[in-house]
Amino acid sequence: MAEQVALSRTQVCGILREELFQGDAFHQSDTHIFIIMGASGDLAKKKIYPTIWWLFRDGLLPENTFIVGYARSRLTVADIRKQSEPFFKATPEEKLKLEDFFARNSYVAGQYDDAASYQRLNSHMNALHLGSQANRLFYLALPPTVYEAVTKNIHESCMSQIGWNRIIVEKPFGRDLQSSDRLSNHISSLFREDQIYRIDHYLGKEMVQNLMVLRFANRIFGPIWNRDNIACVILTFKEPFGTEGRGGYFDEFGIIRDVMQNHLLQMLCLVAMEKPASTNSDDVRDEKVKVLKCISEVQANNVVLGQYVGNPDGEGEATKGYLDDPTVPRGSTTATFAAVVLYVENERWDGVPFILRCGKALNERKAEVRLQFHDVAGDIFHQQCKRNELVIRVQPNEAVYTKMMTKKPGMFFNPEESELDLTYGNRYKNVKLPDAYERLILDVFCGSQMHFVRSDELREAWRIFTPLLHQIELEKPKPIPYIYGSRGPTEADELMKRVGFQYEGTYKWVNP
């Protein structure tokens, strides 16, 4: 592979701008107003304001973009700056750019259920340069409990009458099928589907988006991507930290609602779906819905739930269990780990287990898709061969690698495990991989909904998990304890083995 010439960040961002501006969906010269509902909250200060700053800094926003914060707290732009700027990672050389960014910011205080507050917000936006005809993007960085009041008031008082209007809704989209349907029906009564952007930030990850290209742009994968060759698929999300004093919020939802029903299920769809007619948003989402419709409700015998306990040999936070978090209700049975087996009941995947695993306070930070292939028929190497695996590593250190057998150097035919490896950090030294939120917010500006969740996708996802969630809430089974920093409950490994996964433990990928 030829040595790549190092590029400056300015040059890299210039390439990104060229890609972005050559499309006809990006209205570079139009006025846009980006409204952050819930501007005083954690999500706004840690993710949304920093993301908008990065896009502005790199010249990736339309030229005439204004940012308006809205929340109940009586704040000023200076207050917003004070709480969000520490997350910007701005350099001293960017000081003038930073001043320009905050000059485009404003803030309006108001209630979430008060019509007069929204009329005041609308008047404020109209007073901005060309504000009355601007395109408006409303980001709901809010708890779902206020979605209905907020969307109703936005629709009645704050819509642009000339430009387009788009609304970005953060997960969780309800707690179960019934609450999700209620919320979807409410929002759909106010906005068209092409105006609604239900954001799952995992769909903005580079390697998640790469799944489609790997599958449908490489001839070698087509013939082997089926039940005849693939023994099982494992989708993993692991965090090495616990709730760390923020367990009160987590306890309301648990690990299945927080990660599995959305992030992991979306990745499953991209692995299992048929080739779409095109890369058009609805063509892709149509195929994802077909996959979900082929999955039956989760069966309790295919589920393992766990909850982390303190590690007596650990240090600091590792010595504390979930129930030691003062914000967690006493005696909570909320799971911090889950392993679930699903089956896609169609011709391509009949009988292939899709194993979804996620948890907190585990032994490493990792998100990946792992396809394990069947054993080689007619073994001539005296059971020395391990199964081939194709691994798409989402985070950290984005990579695609194939675990395969090669001859060990020497005189004899002794096979050993090795890999074919594409590590993004080595291959793409001159490429700026956008943060997931950067990519998705740019998608909203461009009107691309491919990486957002459609209402029928959402409904099918909740259909699969709601009976299990209701059973857990009714019966309150005690989750299996696992030690902070471990791989999780051993019962999860036993479940995976029972459905056909072979864990060798003899080879570990190392970032080159």
Score class of each variant (00 low, 15 high):
75 L>V: 11
194 D>I: 08
167 I>H: 04
41 G>S: 00
120 R>A: 13
69 G>D: 04
233 V>T: 00
203 L>N: 05
248 G>V: 01
213 V>F: 10
14 G>T: 12
251 D>Y: 02
247 G>N: 05
57 R>T: 02
17 R>D: 11
216 F>C: 00
193 E>W: 02
231 A>Q: 14
103 A>N: 15
70 Y>W: 08
191 F>Y: 14
31 T>F: 10
142 L>N: 04
233 V>N: 02
161 Q>L: 15
16 L>W: 10
53 W>S: 01
83 Q>I: 10
229 N>V: 08
97 K>R: 14
254 G>I: 04
132 S>R: 15
233 V>A: 06
97 K>G: 08
238 K>T: 01
169 V>G: 04
216 F>K: 04
78 A>V: 10
252 E>W: 07
207 M>P: 04
34 F>G: 01
168 I>K: 00
206 E>T: 06
99 E>F: 06
161 Q>C: 09
112 Y>Q: 02
216 F>P: 04
43 L>M: 00
135 N>F: 05
162 I>V: 15
72 R>K: 04
132 S>Q: 15
82 K>Q: 10
244 E>Y: 12
155 H>K: 14
69 G>P: 04
126 N>T: 14
224 I>E: 06
52 I>G: 00
61 L>W: 06
224 I>H: 06
39 A>W: 03
64 N>R: 13
10 T>R: 15
52 I>N: 02
121 L>N: 03
32 H>N: 11
79 D>L: 07
93 E>K: 12
126 N>P: 05
18 E>T: 08
219 R>Q: 08
54 W>E: 09
19 E>I: 14
233 V>C: 10
110 G>Y: 00
108 V>Y: 10
35 I>Y: 00
111 Q>A: 14
182 R>A: 13
38 G>L: 03
204 G>I: 01
168 I>R: 04
231 A>C: 09
163 G>N: 06
22 Q>A: 14
197 Y>C: 05
61 L>T: 08
17 R>Q: 13
214 L>P: 02
60 L>R: 08
8 S>P: 08
52 I>Y: 06
160 S>F: 05
247 G>R: 05
161 Q>W: 13
97 K>C: 09
8 S>C: 06
39 A>G: 03
43 L>W: 02
16 L>V: 10
116 A>V: 11
97 K>M: 14
113 D>I: 06
179 S>M: 05
174 G>K: 02
172 P>E: 06
14 G>A: 15
237 F>K: 04
238 K>E: 00
21 F>G: 08
8 S>V: 07
138 F>A: 03
179 S>N: 04
56 F>P: 04
126 N>K: 12
82 K>P: 06
221 F>G: 00
57 R>D: 04
254 G>T: 04
157 S>G: 12
206 E>M: 08
91 T>I: 10
76 T>K: 13
248 G>W: 01
214 L>W: 12
242 G>R: 08
252 E>I: 10
151 T>I: 11
226 N>R: 07
212 M>N: 02
166 R>P: 01
110 G>D: 02
232 C>I: 02
121 L>C: 06
15 I>T: 13
49 Y>D: 02
195 Q>S: 11
11 Q>A: 15
248 G>Q: 06
10 T>E: 15
11 Q>H: 12
30 D>E: 15
187 I>W: 03
8 S>N: 15
152 K>R: 15
212 M>R: 05
87 F>T: 07
200 D>E: 04
241 F>Y: 15
144 P>A: 07
70 Y>I: 08
20 L>K: 08
21 F>Y: 10
59 G>V: 01
161 Q>E: 13
173 F>H: 05
212 M>Q: 03
232 C>E: 07
12 V>E: 10
80 I>L: 14
34 F>K: 01
113 D>N: 09
211 L>R: 03
86 P>K: 10
155 H>E: 08
156 E>C: 11
82 K>R: 14
187 I>V: 08
33 I>F: 11
80 I>A: 07
63 E>I: 13
210 N>M: 03
47 K>M: 04
165 N>G: 09
8 S>L: 04
45 K>P: 00
42 D>K: 02
178 Q>R: 14
244 E>V: 14
119 Q>I: 13
15 I>E: 12
92 P>V: 10
110 G>K: 04
237 F>A: 07
126 N>H: 14
245 G>Y: 10
50 P>I: 01
255 I>F: 05
161 Q>M: 12
105 N>K: 00
182 R>K: 13
40 S>E: 05
73 S>A: 09
182 R>S: 08
203 L>A: 04
176 D>W: 03
135 N>D: 08
200 D>P: 01
253 F>Q: 01
167 I>P: 02
248 G>D: 00
33 I>D: 03
67 I>P: 02
193 E>I: 03
37 M>H: 07
42 D>V: 00
241 F>T: 06
17 R>V: 14
189 S>Q: 14
219 R>E: 04
131 G>R: 11
65 T>D: 05
53 W>K: 02
140 L>P: 04
58 D>M: 14
232 C>W: 01
239 E>D: 06
125 M>R: 04
147 Y>F: 12
148 E>L: 12
26 F>K: 11
166 R>Y: 00
187 I>M: 13
33 I>L: 12
211 L>F: 14
140 L>V: 11
168 I>E: 02
12 V>H: 15
51 T>N: 10
140 L>K: 03
20 L>Y: 12
156 E>F: 10
142 L>C: 04
85 E>M: 13
215 R>P: 02
177 L>C: 09
225 W>R: 02
126 N>F: 08
7 L>C: 04
97 K>E: 09
60 L>V: 10
216 F>S: 04
198 R>Q: 01
205 K>N: 00
107 Y>E: 02
115 A>M: 14
95 K>A: 15
207 M>C: 05
238 K>V: 01
141 A>T: 06
246 R>K: 00
167 I>G: 01
222 G>D: 15
195 Q>H: 08
253 F>E: 02
169 V>D: 01
80 I>W: 06
130 L>I: 14
9 R>E: 07
162 I>D: 14
254 G>L: 03
124 H>F: 13
231 A>P: 00
46 K>C: 01
96 L>W: 13
58 D>F: 08
247 G>W: 05
101 F>V: 00
180 S>G: 06
138 F>I: 07
46 K>R: 14
222 G>R: 12
